[in-house]
Amino acid sequence: MNKKITQKIAFGIFRILGWTVVGILLWILGFIVYNGIGVISLEFIFAAPRNGMLEGGIFPAIVGTLCLIVGSTIVAFPLGIMSAIYTNEYVRDGKISRVMRMMTNNLGSIPSIVFGLFGMALFVRTMGWGSSIIAGSFTLGLLVLPLVIRTTEEALRMVPDSLRAGSYALGATKLQTIRHVVLPMAFPNIVTGLILSVGRVSGETAPILFTVAAYFLPRLPSSIFDQVMALPYHLYVLSTSGTSLEAQRPMAYGTALVLITLVLIINFTASLIRRHFSKKHGAV
């Protein structure tokens, strides 16, 4: 009997803890949506900030973040996908792939501020690109590279070996097998991983502090060597510095809402794609 009571208490606690996590999430999201929704308007999204960032909108920051997403995608996706193909299809269980996987894990564990330092030293100063979209894109691209590699590798691993064997048996070469059998099968999962890494890029602040982000720049970039504003950095600026923190609060709430909506839409799309295709595959 006593055992049963202990069990009841313990399980009750775990259940409460489980729902606490949901509660925390709803609290954070609810707080930002509740305070930010009133600020959102067409002007807020499509105008530049005015009057010491107290009025106007955040359009340059949205454009800046989109530039960084595109830039880092160009850097990270091809490299990451090819790297995953190499470790999973060419040197699958050898020593080389073990070392490569270890390095990918280690790179993934490096804090984002260290990437910021590295980007500052290599891209901004040594390469002489200055604080610019291209410097920020390379920094962010290298930051998400481990994520791209890991998710692509997982996607490739889910393709059954029997399909590869079948392809070889029909006389296909390795490259043909990869192109016509492995990649099409793994495609949805690869896309999911790529989208997740885009979500990561759009929220990162520390790496762009010194490599691209502009404090206040109400015009749009004209080349990849321009500085841009970015949503996460803009939120940081609005909430910690500026002429009047209290007066800036509404703009900060609005920016936070736009940022979080962007990130959540990206993540949601990823899980939608995954769910859609996993059902399809289940049927096959």
């Binding site: 602040t205 909430s239 940022l259 990130v263």
Partner: peptide, 11 residues
Amino acid sequence: LAGIPSVVYGF
């Protein structure tokens, strides 16, 4: 929860 950007947590 894992996807929320750190700057939003900070805010």
